[in-house]
Amino acid sequence: MPQNLSSSISSDSVIAHRPPQFSYLRKVGAIAGKDIAAELRTKEMMSAMFVFSLLVIFIFNFAFDLRTDNANTLAPGVLWVAIAFAGMLGLGRSFITERDRGSLEGLLLAPVDRSAIYFGKFLGNVLFISVVEVVILPLFIVFFNQPLDIIVPLSGVVVLGTIGFAGVGTLFSAMVIHTRARDVLLPIMLFPVVVPVLLSAVRLTAGILDKLPFEDVQNWLGLLVAFDLIFLAVSYMMFEYVVEE
């Protein structure tokens, strides 16, 4: 780290000249915490995500006329449609609100690697989607007549799927902020890219509902984990260029 700047610009007056330990992680936490605090005040995004996901579960439940023999075939798709579309509502607001309210420059001015902004936003998005999932998973089990013991493996799949979805979604949310049709563009760009994550998550969910042996679904698990890692790594590398003017 360069040391000669502080001496040349009267650093005695600068309060923050020696970042504390774990400064990067603290800033990631600060950004996520700021988003959570703002959401707790307004509850706009969470309520929309929550209501939307509930509606999807309700509507599909009635529209497909689910019976015991076909429930397991359709249920995984219904669950992930609910998660993906509700998650899209949250992702769509992640950077767009920063841009619309003029606070994005404040974030970009902060003395931190741009990737900390990405991970802070990503963490906030994962938390928001997870809160919705905590509510809809029990409802999903009730509506689709699933045994309670699937909750643990299903939660694991949901967490992995959410990481991949929010990972690439957060990056794309930042990419579209400079476009006019950003609300439309985000889902059009995101869904084709996130297909491997959704496909793996649906297959794993189906495997859990059908109580398939682990060997039958481990390839899907490997694919899901691999895409999570790839999406996070690519987003980490690309984010600085995405938020350039």
Partner: peptide
């Protein structure tokens, strides 16, 4: 700037506390 770079939904103190963390203010 003419944009305040503030978060409307947060209080004045919450805004400054957020930026204090971003700038490692002691």
């Amino acid at each position: 700037s003419h944009k305040t770079l503030l978060y409307d939904d947060l209080s004045g103190e919450q805004n400054l506390r957020f930026y204090a963390r971003m700038y490692d203010v002691q």
